[in-house]
Design a protein around this nucleic acid. Structure first.
Lengths: 245, 245
DNA sequence: GACAAGCAGATTGTCGACAATCTAACAAGA
DNA sequence: TCTTGTTAGATTGTCGACAATCTGCTTGTC
């Protein structure tokens, strides 16, 4: 008998596909923070009924990237500087923990996967594909969580990641510059391969701090803009149209 | 003009009420781990249609206390010893962080609230109300998170709490003994009022460890029973988890 | 002109029915 | 006996329509 490991077949429910579509639209910034999601219009565009769409939206609400107000609508979450700050400071703590757990589980496969993901980031950087660069960088970062053998920790980080990715995407959208050319993950990878766990943990903190200040500054500027036209945002004013699929 | 703070009016959607009902049923152990939720039957019992019920279920799936398999059904999550272990070890880390953040924000109101919640636990203990005892103990524990002024951390902990509460409820259901009569939170409260942050953090770890072993042992016995029964695991969600890399 | 009441329009929440899929039982064939 | 194909029943996934609610505009009154 052949010893082939079959991977589970794809979820064939419309709901799952809608979730994926919406999540991508949000995390890449096609749907802007604060924007209202009109169920009828989205359902029409996707050629589905509102039932699976609404179920998908509930999932994303619980995932933390949408927020829902009964009888008013469902909106992409607003990005506040405080949120970013909170998320990052928590991320630091989780990183330290993940490194600690992963440390003694590192093996040849871990290092290989680490290199593979690092390479993916560098490739995306060369391609000047900012969206993919964010994606791959977070995947590189996520390896220590996947390897930590703590499913609750992994799940927690993945939730956090959704927002972080959204924040990053916003940031990248804002500044038109393409991308940082230098490889900011070189040290991170090297330390994860090394023998000094403390050093790796320390670097994880500092590395995160890298363009944190820039991101925060951008978030604050967003807030100022928001506080001016707050009323219009809340009502779902037709400022930006959702880019259909 | 009177300076009255109005609390937000209750969510008037059926969905929200269904979520609350289901969550309570799960966290109190009325719905057992691994049990399937039949949509038609539950909808009939609650006198609602399946639409809001299904949306509610999606929320609880994302909340981590239900799990869904397309075209097969939605089930209460299975409790594995590993899950409990993972949740607790993460909880320790979060506790340390929460104490650190809260420490310099403590004030008179904090201490008052601390005492109030502590009193609630003692009251539930006197009343021999195990369910409420778990509830109040977790609320006491949650104060440092609410006070930490980090919404992401709070949210993370609340997700974790759902499961912890479920685990505790299971445990309490299992052993028919009423409750521990001694006040296990006395030291915790005292240290949170004191001046030695490190001591408080240290105690948080040890306090958690208190009946952890007992809970783990119970979870392991559950697993053995499950592996024998092998009745509802046709979808494979009770088996080992081959995820990871 | 200011302001409350009330009327449309649009949008969300909910319902009942239908379609797609799974499970289990049973028959046919090797 | 074991396997395979078929069928019936039950359950989940999806749809279109209706009810409840919100928003903005109009109207009438002062």
């Amino acid at each position: 008998m052949g010893k082939l490991d079959f991977s589970p077949i794809a979820d064939t429910t419309r709901r799952a596909e809608i979730v994926a579509l919406l999540r991508r639209a949000i995390l890449t910034g096609q749907l802007e923070p604060g924007q209202k999601l009109n169920e009828l219009r989205i359902a029409e565009q996707m050629r589905v009924s509102r039932a699976p769409l609404r179920e998908a939206m509930r999932e994303l609400v619980q995932e933390g990237i949408l927020t829902s107000i009964p009888y008013a609508g469902t909106f992409v979450i607003d990005v506040t500087a405080k949120d970013i700050d909170d998320a990052y400071s928590l991320n630091k703590v989780l990183d330290e923990f993940a490194i600690e757990l992963t440390w003694k589980l590192r093996d040849q496969r871990f290092f290989a996967e680490l290199d593979r993901r690092h390479e993916a980031v560098k490739q995306a950087t060369r391609d000047l594909d900012t969206t993919r660069q964010i994606e791959t960088a977070l995947q590189l970062h996520g390896l220590i969580y996947e390897w930590s053998d703590n499913s609750v920790l992994l799940e927690t980080w993945q939730r956090l990641t959704s927002r972080l990715q959204m924040y990053f995407a916003l940031h990248q959208h804002a500044r038109n510059e393409p991308v940082p050319a230098e490889d900011v993950h070189e040290t991170y990878v090297r330390l994860l391969k090394g023998k000094d766990m403390r050093a790796a943990q320390r670097h994880a903190r500092e590395h995160i701090d890298l363009d944190f200040e820039e991101l925060l500054a951008y978030a604050r500027s967003l807030e100022q803009r928001a506080s001016k036209g707050a009323r219009a945002d809340r009502a779902g004013h037709a400022r930006g149209r959702p880019e259909g699929g």
